[in-house]
Design a protein around this nucleic acid. Structure first.
Lengths: 197, 197
DNA sequence: ACCTGAACACCGTTCAAGT
DNA sequence: ACCTGAACACCGTTCAAGT
């Protein structure tokens, strides 16, 4: 499960790699996660072949660019395990997960592929870590009876995923919150009764 | 609001148009909604220019290919207005809407664009019709107090949309049903209390 | 060991020439 | 009025040649 030994790169290779990541970050931010790889290489002032050498697949590049964000959301999960109200902690974390999945336009499509394909790519490894963080929060919330006992982590991830997808495809930012509101209501075991129309 | 006068095509043009639609149908089914336009033209044994003449935009082609499906779901909406239980009718219709949005792989991306861009394309017109059908069902269900009074059609469509997106990106067919289950629970005003874990 | 960029493949889109 | 397909632009990916 531990990642394979990342043996040290030659100094110039390391430098190129860093430049590629920085360039990709900018390019993804400006043009979305399906930005042109050639443009990224050019921006990094590096041959296109070098990009392919370091990142055989677009997903590998995306994973590296997202690495720190992944660490953050996973760490946040650990943090929220200490939250007084487990159900609320889960909901808070899911909202932040949506933000993460929304870092760049077109990201959800890439992530979705990462989930289903389960190719040995780095992106899948990141997804696994996130799933585990979610599982911990879910178990705790279920133990207190706040969240449906029959719900699975997979659902939570899908939930966040679909909200993120909406965020990508809507201009209305409130839409995401409304969708999440519905979803969270659906996940809860006991809901306050509501006034009739 | 009525579509512009579709003045009669020359016989050969009409024939080519039909062949293009048939070819697109097959190609979309096999390779998804982003299938190569050139392949479609070739399959229809027509020059690529002819395709562009009839369908200046991919969305126009998609709209035509989906036309009968759109009619079906809209008609189904009218039909379900006669259903004894309005809330259930809404839910049934939404499930069928997901099926419609799921006709071809990669369709939700195209439809989403249709919703936000609101370019004058035929696809947007279809989306509008569907939205209206949903509105009618929603109003009726809200009037009986079964569905949240504060929910909007837009939410319903987004709901179905996100479920359809999940369907596209998951191999597990049960995932869609589970997501829809959560969503529908969230939409309902009164929910049966559930056993604790 | 690593980098480079020309070369190839593929797709979308336009438009001048044809009927 | 409509069709055709060559031509152009653009992007992804590989690989032989270079350091």
């Amino acid at each position: 499960m531990t990642s394979p030994p990342p043996r040290p790169l030659r100094a110039d290779a390391k430098r190129n790699c860093d430049r590629l990541i920085a360039a990709a970050k900018s390019e993804f931010a400006e043009r979305g996660a399906s930005a042109s790889l050639e443009d990224i290489a050019e921006r990094a002032r590096v041959g296109i072949g070098t990009l392919y050498r370091h990142f055989p697949t677009r997903d590998d590049l995306i994973a590296k660019v997202l690495a720190s964000g992944t660490e953050t959301i996973v760490a946040r999960g650990r943090e929220l395990l200490g939250h007084a109200r487990p159900g609320e902690a889960l909901v808070i974390w899911l909202r932040e997960l949506v933000d993460h999945q929304t870092t760049y336009r077109g990201l959800t499509a890439a992530l979705a592929q990462g989930y289903i394909a389960d190719n040995g790519t780095q992106l899948c490894a990141s997804c696994d870590l996130i799933t585990q963080a979610g599982q911990a929060l879910l178990s705790r919330a279920q133990a207190t009876g706040e969240i449906r006992p029959d719900s699975e982590v997979r659902e939570l991830i899908l939930t966040a995923h679909s909200a993120a997808w909406i965020a990508e495809n809507t201009e209305d930012p409130a839409a995401v919150d409304r969708l999440l509101g519905i979803l969270f209501d659906g996940l809860r075991v006991v809901r306050p009764s509501r006034k009739r129309a």
